[in-house]
């Protein structure tokens, strides 16, 4: 156990030693479309990948109770848009989004939420590991996003227990999205 603890300590400390923090003010460049997608106007074309419902990272709720609890498509659209807006305005995590295609992110997030909530959508995005690869996310980034999602769900007047049922589906994604 002592060995395990030391190992855990080393793992926790390693990123601090290796990753030199960017000087403050050194923000990533803003996103620009270079190769417009033919299928999704306003989005950048992405390299081909295998479409698979499993890419959503979790299984959907059975029945349509959760879909109704989230006020169906209109509710999911509000929740996703506000979560993204709050994240873009949050200095703790806004840089993470700057060099990414926000049009595609909003669309695929709405698909993913709809799929998980039992709204019957197909999720057309990549899997969680591929999407977050090399972003260098930390638990605090993951939690900041959850805080925004909670605020957005509050504003959409989604019941607290249903919010938690949904968060229970998303929480294990910490393992695949947080890399350090």
């Amino acid at each position: 156990m002592i060995k395990g603890l030391m190992l855990a300590g080393a793992v926790a400390l390693a990123p601090l030693a290796v990753v030199a923090a960017p000087a403050s003010g050194d923000h990533p460049p803003p996103f620009k479309i270079e190769h417009p997608s033919t299928q999704y106007p306003g989005e950048e074309e992405v390299d081909a990948y295998k479409h698979d419902p499993a890419n959503a990272g979790t299984t959907p709720f059975e029945g349509d109770r959760m879909w109704k609890a989230f006020h169906e498509q209109a509710g999911v659209d509000h929740v996703v848009d506000e979560t993204v807006d709050l994240s873009l305005a949050d200095p703790r995590i806004s840089d993470i989004f700057k060099s990414h295609d926000m049009v595609r992110l909003r669309r695929t997030l709405k698909e993913q939420f709809c799929y998980i909530l039992g709204g019957g959508c197909a999720y057309s995005g990549r899997d969680m590991k591929a999407v977050h690869k090399d972003m260098g996310l930390q638990n605090a980034d993951f939690n900041a996003l959850v805080e925004h999602l909670q605020i957005a769900m509050d504003h959409e007047k989604i019941g607290f227990r249903d919010q938690n049922r949904f968060l229970a589906k998303l929480a294990p994604m910490q393992r695949t999205t947080v890399e350090r």
């Binding site: 990123p15 601090l16 990753v19 923090a21 960017p22 403050s24 930390q138 638990n139 605090a140 939690n143 900041a144 959850v146 805080e147």
Partner: peptide
């Protein structure tokens, strides 16, 4: 603290 060392962040 260093920006990689996060002082808080739990829910």
């Amino acid at each position: 603290a260093d920006s990689d060392l996060r002082p808080s962040g739990k829910l």
